[in-house]
Design a protein around this nucleic acid. Structure first.
Lengths: 110, 110
DNA sequence: AGTTATTATCGTATATTTGCGATATAGGAT
DNA sequence: ATCCTATATCGCAAATATACGATAATAACT
């Protein structure tokens, strides 16, 4: 079992969930914050910043890249990462649209 | 290994990640959307709506409840669920604040 | 008390995530 | 060519998530 039933949901629902999943670990939140602050930086800078090994950081970067939130630009022996403004803005719009939905207040507390 | 290093990050980072994690599955997005649309409903209504078993739906509801996003009110033999407006609004504010951060455009693409 | 309806929890199987060390890969420097 | 540095990937172990059927718990109704 545990065949993931993800495909049975709408593409909108899957998109929101996919983006949230990419942001569902504190290390990845920290990486995003660091990239926003520094504007751009090398993988090694992130490794120095976080309490995680190089290989683990590389994996987190890969997940953020897969979600399209960041891009890595090869610069000599190093890789320069930064926020992908386009996707970042889109993600913000999509998630915010979802989160800003208001449900009419229920009668009791519920 | 794989002792989760979550505790080494700031409480802000953990909070955002925790909320995103609660929203990191399409079923839970669908549940939230359903609750917003219906304003309130029974667990069974959600089971009828989703392509998942009763026990699986119950687990997803539990996760949303643990994150504080929904509340369940016992009503006879049933449980009436609805969005917790307070927490929902706070979550929206916290996540939106994070997502609306802009990084100065990097020089190249990166 | 017995029955039915609804939901939560338990047990279990499988999949995925997290994390690290070791190794591979690629680019620059000597 | 060799060495060094930076990053990605592989292989593995442990933890967590996903899913379901079976069972327990709770409440209403006979």
């Amino acid at each position: 079992m545990a065949i993931t039933k993800v495909s049975e949901f709408s593409s909108k629902e899957r998109k929101i969930a996919m983006l949230c999943k990419a942001l569902a670990h504190p290390a990845r939140i920290a990486i995003i914050n660091f990239l926003i602050k520094k504007r751009e930086c090398f993988c090694g800078d992130v490794v120095n910043e976080l309490p995680l090994s190089q290989s683990t950081v590389s994996q987190h970067l890969k997940e953020l890249k897969n979600a399209g939130l960041i891009v890595g630009d090869i610069d000599g022996p190093r890789v320069c990462y930064c926020i992908d403004q386009q996707t970042w803005n889109e993600a913000g719009a999509i998630i915010n649209l979802f989160l800003s939905q208001k449900s009419k207040q229920a009668v009791k507390p519920c």
